[in-house]
Design a protein around this nucleic acid. Sequence first.
DNA 1: TTTAATTTTTAGACAACTCTAAAAATATGT
DNA 2: ACATATTTTTAGAGTTGTCTAAAAATTAAA
Lengths: 220, 220
Amino acid sequence: MSVTLTEENYLKAIYHISQMTKTDVSTNAIAEKIDAKASSVTDMLKKLSDKGFITYIKYKGVNLTEKGRLTAVDIIRKHRLWEVFLVDKLNFSWDEVHDVAEQLEHIKSPKLIKELDAFLDFPTHDPHGDPIPDKDGQIKRTDKIILSKAEVGGTYKCVGVQDSSTDFLKYLDKHQIQIGTELTVKDIEDFDHSMTFTIHQHNMTMSKAITNNIYVKKLQ
Amino acid sequence: MSVTLTEENYLKAIYHISQMTKTDVSTNAIAEKIDAKASSVTDMLKKLSDKGFITYIKYKGVNLTEKGRLTAVDIIRKHRLWEVFLVDKLNFSWDEVHDVAEQLEHIKSPKLIKELDAFLDFPTHDPHGDPIPDKDGQIKRTDKIILSKAEVGGTYKCVGVQDSSTDFLKYLDKHQIQIGTELTVKDIEDFDHSMTFTIHQHNMTMSKAITNNIYVKKLQ
DNA sequence: TTTAATTTTTAGACAACTCTAAAAATATGT
DNA sequence: ACATATTTTTAGAGTTGTCTAAAAATTAAA
């Protein structure tokens, strides 16, 4: 009862969507994420249900079973470990890693991941600030908030991004924002909720479209 | 016009067989290597021929075109670089690397291989002593000979193996023979061509079945 | 050289995954 | 609540790569 590459991608997509929405995952949402037609998704959902990875009720949507969740989280663990490898050891920038990690995450070898984890010195977060699940599928909860919810006068540390599209990461690189960057909120515009910060001794303003995609942790 | 994983495996198999036999590669030989039926191979040969990777004459066998050779050699380059990574960085032993490298060799990312090559300090040989093709598909010829052809009194350095099955590599590990090990031929038995060596200040005897699978280079 | 054995190819079918088009179920608006 | 719009599922079909069984070509043997 092995898991095919395609099944793995579906499980990962379902996991990510359910993390977002906290409700039953719809066929259309999966179709959009996977970039396939809804009819193809329906076929696959039957298969995943037969194999015990999801609970599937027609027209109602799906949920991961514990078995499905563990499988999805294991793939995410591999993906994020490979991302650390690419950035720390092979000089990839954080906007270049995603496509390659997407391939590497499907390599099957428990020893490979165990040794890679040790070689990277047991990292807890990937280059985008997302936590790396441990080998038992536990994910460390972070007390991060979305930057758009920050308060005037507060100082925050950048811990991750919501959108990891190349375009967005390039924007951050251009403005020298990365994991660990500290920023202080100077002003919030009532009209469009654009925010002005002090970053690296400079002032800069970001639109809500930007601040909605950056996670920060408040510095006490 | 991309190359599927299956096509890559066929090209690699054809390359390896043609290196061995130096003649047209037969359908049955490929079927055995790939572990598929001859009829499946015939189907794939038509496809590879259509795509310009091989010249295929019905009932006569196949040969790689230059395009096919370059593709095969590129996969072998990736395979061997990954083997070096697994042994040098992730504590794999040389009998554990093959299956994982077989998966890793299909990852598509020119930057990944370029950076991995640099990270490993541009290795020229894999852990079994096989040469790593360079990025233009050139393979360094080694002046290695098969150990069974060595002469009494000569001193040789182990540079590679012919058979890289797990059983054989375990035999070598057990007797502490690896790439770089030096040995001096003390005696060759006329009857069965078994050979006695001095290795690590010890004497040991190997049957022809063993010496036929070890490559050595004569130390002048 | 003519028969027998072997190799290779063809024909037809199946599994995994995909699609389009149409039908069925659910949700929405007035 | 009833018509309309949206979502989801079914039905039928295509692609890639595999198989078995049988036919065709080649090679080996007597």
